[in-house]
Structures are given as C-alpha cells and as structure tokens.
C-alpha cells in the first residue's frame, strides 16, 4: 500500500473513532442527565481541570461536555497526526503547513477567549 493511502486510512479512522467516541459520550451524558433528573448544565466552563476531571468526575454534565470536547479535538488531532506523518516522511513543506495551521488556531483561540 502506498504512503498516501496509508495516511488517508489513518486520517479516516481517526476521524471516525473521534466521532463515534463523542457520540457515545453525548448519548451517555444525556441519558444520565435524564435519569438523575439533573436539568442544570454548566455554561462558561473551559478550565482544563474541569474538562479532565469534572466536579465531581464523570457527573452527567461532565460526561456530556466530554463528548463535545472529544468532537472538537478530533479535527485538531487530525492535523497533529498528519503533521507527524509528514515529518516521518520528510515531506517538510506539508509538515510545516500543518504546524503553521495549528499555531494560527492557537493564536485565534487565545485572542477569542481573551
């Protein structure tokens, strides 16, 4: 199998896995919210500690938001994966393109949150 096809399969599987994981987490989160009768959903939360550990860990809304964050992380991880693959292949132009996009996104995010 050629290298381009390998990268395509890697990217396709990564995207599908991310989407499936986020879907499962969202369904589980919604189910838990209904089961517990908890109707409050946090807003304005993006502290790294809350995303990773919740308050408490895996409370229904934390599970739901983990689904959202998995979804958001999926295309970003796709760029990280393809930057790595291009570095390994020594396709430096495309590795640099991917890394530049990640840096621009990081700057946009910092400005947007500001």
């Amino acid at each position: 199998m050629d290298r381009v096809r390998l990268l395509e399969l890697l990217v396709s599987r990564l995207l599908r896995t991310g989407v499936l994981m986020s879907g499962v987490l969202m369904v589980a989160g919604l189910g838990l919210l209904w089961a517990t009768g908890d109707v409050s959903c946090p807003v304005g939360v993006l502290s790294v500690s809350w995303v990773l550990f919740g308050d408490p860990f895996l409370e229904p809304s934390h599970v739901l938001f983990l689904g959202f964050f998995t979804l958001i992380a999926t295309p970003l991880l796709r760029i990280v994966a393809s930057a790595t693959a291009h570095l390994v292949e020594r396709d430096l132009v495309f590795a640099l393109l991917n890394i530049s996009v990640l840096l621009i996104l990081a700057v946009s995010f910092v400005l947007g949150v500001g």
Binding site: V43, L46, L64, F65, F68, I72, T74, L76, V101, G112
Partner: peptide, 22 residues
Amino acid sequence: VTAAASALVYIRHGFCDGFITA
C-alpha cells in the same frame, strides 16, 4: 478545523446549552 477553534470560544463564553446542542 476553523469551526473547532470557534467552538471552544463559544463554549467558553457560555453559548453552549447541552440540552440543545447534544
């Protein structure tokens, strides 16, 4: 890719209701 970066900002500003979004 661009939507993912914007989505983080939207959530940070509280524009994401879990019951509507999910």
